[in-house]
């Protein structure tokens, strides 16, 4: 019968329609976690070019020095800041601290993340 729980329903985690602020926080937390995990592997691959010598590494750095990769780095910074701050929020509320103001804590998390994003965007693109 329909509507039963199933592991195949996991894409529904990312459906924000008709959801409350807590779910948006949950969805962004999962997306940023997946993004950071992906970046970690990418980072290790990049560091692996060091094993091919200084020239290979410098060559690689030359390649990624373009706006697209800088935008990618900005996304990583924003994702890390959000994930870290929301982690504090989840950590506090998980033990009963600030449960009644969890929405406000989420909005503060978003506001700080936005300020950090603008700060780094200006620095990285100017």
């Amino acid at each position: 019968m329909s509507n039963k729980p199933s592991p195949s329903n996991w894409p529904k985690w990312f459906d924000p329609r008709r959801r409350e602020a807590g779910s948006w926080a949950f969805i962004l937390n999962r997306l940023s976690a997946l993004g950071l995990t992906f970046y970690l592997f990418l980072h290790l691959i990049v560091l692996g070019t060091l094993a091919q010598g200084e020239a290979a590494y410098d060559n690689f750095l030359e390649t990624i020095h373009n706006p697209l990769f800088i935008l990618g780095e900005l996304v990583v910074i924003v994702g890390a800041v959000y994930h870290g701050l929301n982690g504090l929020r989840v950590g506090l509320t998980s033990f009963g601290i600030g449960v009644s103001v969890q929405k406000q804590l989420f909005y503060i998390t978003l506001a700080i993340t936005a300020v950090v994003a603008v700060f780094f965007a200006v620095r990285m693109f100017s």
């Binding site: 959801r19 409350e20 602020a21 807590g22 779910s23 926080a25 949950f26 969890q102």
Partner: peptide, 9 residues
């Protein structure tokens, strides 16, 4: 529980 708080909502 992953703290989505939908239950309380």
């Amino acid at each position: 529980c992953h703290s989505a708080f939908e239950c309380t909502a």
